[in-house]
Design a protein around this nucleic acid. Sequence first.
DNA 1: GAATCTATTTTGAGTAGTCAAAATAAATCC
DNA 2: GGATTTATTTTGACTACTCAAAATAGATTC
Lengths: 220, 220
Amino acid sequence: MATSTVENYLKHILLLSEGGGELVSMGALATSLSVVPGTATTMVKALADSGHVEHRPRQGVRLTAEGRRLALSVLRKHRLVETFLVTVLKMDWAAVHAEAEQLEHAISDEVLDRLDALLGHPDTDPHGDPIPSRQGKINSQVYATLATCAVAKPLRLVRITDQSAEFLQFAEQNGLLPGATVHVADRNLAAGLITLKPAKGPALALSLAAAGSILVQPAR
Amino acid sequence: MATSTVENYLKHILLLSEGGGELVSMGALATSLSVVPGTATTMVKALADSGHVEHRPRQGVRLTAEGRRLALSVLRKHRLVETFLVTVLKMDWAAVHAEAEQLEHAISDEVLDRLDALLGHPDTDPHGDPIPSRQGKINSQVYATLATCAVAKPLRLVRITDQSAEFLQFAEQNGLLPGATVHVADRNLAAGLITLKPAKGPALALSLAAAGSILVQPAR
DNA sequence: GAATCTATTTTGAGTAGTCAAAATAAATCC
DNA sequence: GGATTTATTTTGACTACTCAAAATAGATTC
């Protein structure tokens, strides 16, 4: 059985490679896992030995088919657990990420299947992140962000990719939940910010960085 | 934060000391945790250094107040998780022990409190094992067992202390669930078995060892 | 085409846990 | 009261991580 350290490495490699097969650098991986780069190198070599990843020295890592399978299963656990915590236990949107981080390594496939059924087989978690299927399929549709979408057109909010509790809290307080309708009133590249007008509630300003973590699609 | 190894040692010491303050031998502890005795000795010394237990060399271990507090909190998690798995996820009575063994170390106090509320603050788990309160109080009432109780008197089944999946499966198939009414038709010390007559269903024979793990109280 | 900068890898050492097997202490037996 | 049995402890070694800091490889600059 894979240790939770192994599961975490694979999950972070998956997330950093954006679903595609690009190489993930040691620096990025180390930062993402909060370890020093040397640790990431050592661990990645071990992961390569066990067949979970392919390591190109000085270039980066990529998941093998087996590594990807395992990483998707961890991601599925993480996102279903988050969904359970929010919809059944009514926990705070912003707090569930940290909880799921622990539980994703302790939950069995059997429990997961029952949780999935209880929740009605959702295909996204409360933040709009797609939940991989049992077979390892995941919706990898590319959406526009508030930093890149058309101005003054009505938009439906699909997903918040920033996992930090502070940002999620801010988003919730301003009604920026998946499903909400908004439009970008103004985008000022020079100032590095956008002005957002939610369908309900007052207008608000957002940095381009923050706007980039909110994914949208044209509303009707 | 205590590692899950530490949590397991403390939990097993608590269970082996029967709630009281008796010393637990290294041999018993090692067997219970499936480690060799030398490992238990080493670990217990570390636990003594961190103030969780008191170690009397060549005699045994005992929990300190702090160790007991932590052990009870782990036991509370274990038993509430078991209850959740059976009553909400409809999992098999016999399978939940192994699941809870993992989840008890990954679940936060916040999640636990919400689970507890969702379940209506139960005071026993599906096997009849008492659930410690948030404050660390636990019902330590002493019950008779089918091996020690009066013969031919009506009894209410309160608890099954054997955690093994096989025994629990057997018990379930014969209607031996907490709350069931039975009486002991015969007890044959020489043969080492008892004959049990459930209120509903046919009579069945049980070894004294098996009978000893079924706790009962006088019915009505 | 050296010199420098930056990312990565290597090396050496530490922590938390484990086992196998030898040493020791306590209890029991004759 | 010695000899033996049994439980416990000690010792040395291994796995799975981790970090700090030195070495190295590529890329970049002048």
